[in-house]
Simulated scan of single mutants.
Amino acid sequence: MHVLITGGAGYIGSMLTANLLFQGHQVTVVDKLIFGGDSLLGFMTHPAFKFHYADLTETRLSSLVDLSDVDAVVHLAAIVGFPACQAVGHDVAWRYNVEMTQEVFADAEAAGVKRFVFASTYSNYGLAEDGLMVTEESPLRPQSLYAETKIASEQFLLEKSATSSCVPVLFRFATLFGISPRTRFDLIINQFVLEALTQRKLIIYQRGYARSFVHVYDVVRAVIMGLTADEGIVGGQVFNVGSETGNFSKDEIVQLVKKHVRGVEIQYKDLSFGGDMRDIRVSFEKIRSRLGYEPIVSVEDGIQEVRDAIETELVGNALSERHRNAHFIVQ
């Protein structure tokens, strides 16, 4: 296939690019490079790789790339997470996360692209009712601007799926963790391990809140399944991405971090704050039954992976990322 990835230099996109190229596909990446382009440097001489620098809120995709030979678009480009969306404000977040999605899809549809994979989030569920496990059919209760933008894009794509020849596939990712060519350290597990190693202290809010976690490599595997599965199985469908074995409370994550990073002081504080207030356990039965999907990397293995990558300085951007994200509350 020829797969075009928006946001392909990012946390998910850079690993997805590597895996698609390894499997023999052609990959075109379009990215604004907000966090730099080091994650793509290893692909620059690959004959099946192309890169375009662009902000897709300012430049239409169809003006950059001949989409007539593109088989699928994976749309990852977005302002990701509730702190970032709150920082830029409603109008900018909506422009990047909703209007850009609509424009990229329109260009793909007009050019005859057959599949459109969209990165969404289980933040859309918000706070679960009566502690019940949420499924793809559960009510959406967004607690943040970020989730509101993702729900709006989902609704647009699901409406299009009824009539469009460009088939949308929607993935609601659990909270990611693990190392990639462009590792993020503003995600709970990665951040906890980094703070444990560099400060020997963690301050934890909402300790009993439950979340679901999935390794970035397992997210990439799910996306590739969404690209290659029969249209009748995935077309116009929403899938939670993860596993019930990835459902943990924050306190349980802290105990695993303490197990693998010695000498860490833990402080718990009772504090409520605005933003992405998730307290949910997620069902992944749909993606398991329809696609045969099961994650490979456990949370505990991921904690050790992140620890080892930081301790050996394999992740050279760890300290700079910690500084960059210093305004985020450890949560």
Rank of each mutant, 00 (worst) to 15 (best):
V241D: 02
G236Q: 07
T312K: 14
R307Y: 06
R281C: 02
S272C: 06
R290D: 04
N240K: 06
D270A: 09
Y268W: 07
V220W: 02
V264M: 05
A318M: 13
E265F: 03
E311P: 08
S298C: 09
R307V: 05
R281N: 02
A229S: 10
Y293K: 04
L291I: 03
S298K: 11
V220F: 02
N317H: 15
G226I: 03
L314Q: 13
G292H: 04
E305H: 11
Q267F: 11
V238G: 02
K259L: 00
G246D: 09
G292E: 05
E265K: 11
G235P: 00
E311T: 15
V261L: 00
S249Q: 08
I303D: 03
R262M: 04
R278I: 13
L314R: 15
A222K: 02
K250D: 05
V254L: 00
V315F: 03
F239K: 02
I233H: 12
V238Y: 02
G274D: 10
E244T: 11
S298M: 10
I296M: 12
R281D: 02
Q255F: 02
D270F: 05
A309T: 09
S272V: 14
R262V: 09
R221K: 09
R278Q: 15
V234Y: 01
I266L: 13
Y293T: 08
G235I: 00
Y268H: 06
A222V: 02
I280S: 06
E300Y: 07
R278V: 14
M277V: 15
G292W: 03
I280H: 08
K250E: 04
L271R: 15
E305Q: 15
S272R: 15
Q267A: 13
E231L: 13
T228V: 11
I253P: 01
E285K: 14
V220G: 04
V315G: 01
V257G: 02
T228M: 04
G246A: 15
Y293S: 03
I224W: 07
S298L: 05
G246N: 10
G246E: 11
G236M: 03
E252V: 06
K258V: 12
K250T: 08
L227E: 04
A222H: 01
S283Y: 03
I253G: 01
K259S: 00
I303F: 05
I296H: 11
D279K: 07
E285N: 08
G263T: 03
M277D: 14
G302N: 14
G226S: 07
K258E: 12
F284V: 07
S243L: 07
R307G: 05
D301M: 14
E305S: 14
S272G: 09
D308E: 13
F239Y: 08
A229I: 02
A309E: 08
G263N: 05
I310F: 03
S320D: 10
D251T: 14
V299M: 09
I224N: 07
R288F: 06
Q304K: 15
G316W: 00
V234P: 01
L314E: 14
K259T: 01
S272A: 14
E313N: 14
K250Q: 10
G246V: 14
T312F: 06
